[in-house]
Amino acid sequence: MHVPDGFLDAPTSIATAAAAATAIGLALRGARRELDERVAPLAGLVATFVFATQMINFPVAGGTSGHLMGGALAAVLVGPYTGILCLTVVLGVQAMLFADGGITALGTNVVLMGVVTVVVGYAVARAVQLVLPRRLPMVAVAAALGAIASVLASAAVFVGLYSAGGAVPIPLDTLLTAMLGVHTLIGVGEAVITFLVVASIVSVRPDLVHLARPVLVTRELETRLVAA
């Protein structure tokens, strides 16, 4: 999904850079509430893990590949504000050091993979969590559904940006169908990886998982009620 230089025109790239900068500013403020002694090192690990996992392109249909975006995963593990910062660090290192994603497209990539995936992934995971039973194993299920939604949202937002400032005119519905089609398959991969990672950490240390905290609070209250 890393957008290279040249796909989007200058005005669109400037607009996405401004949007990315605004989102990072808000995230820097919001992350102070999420980060404590315990979460801060975990956030570094999440960023490193997302970087590493993004190197693994898995094959999807027809000579096409995809990799984890990681926005939903990061948001579920360390919180949405910190998640935006994790993905921003990853995307910045990729663009500057590895020429993965363009430099002028960095704002676009932060918006698509650092903000849209985090916000949509987290919102969907929270919404699913409200519907499902309040039990720890459900945290990874909610995260997985957030993950697939996050990839589709990111693909759809790219289509929106391309329609505003794409290099070559392409019929919007053709582009949308193509992007959503291939990213549905990639989204399934995203959901599987997100489920496995979240389920692993929830099974050993649920207290370290941001999205598991509401469940843990409920469980503690229930335990006290029974004891009394």
Binding site: L35, A47, T48, F51, G92
Partner: peptide
Amino acid sequence: GCLMVLACSSLFHLLR
């Protein structure tokens, strides 16, 4: 790259 991302993540310690 992993080490670079980890180094950049010291940001999180400044924010905590």
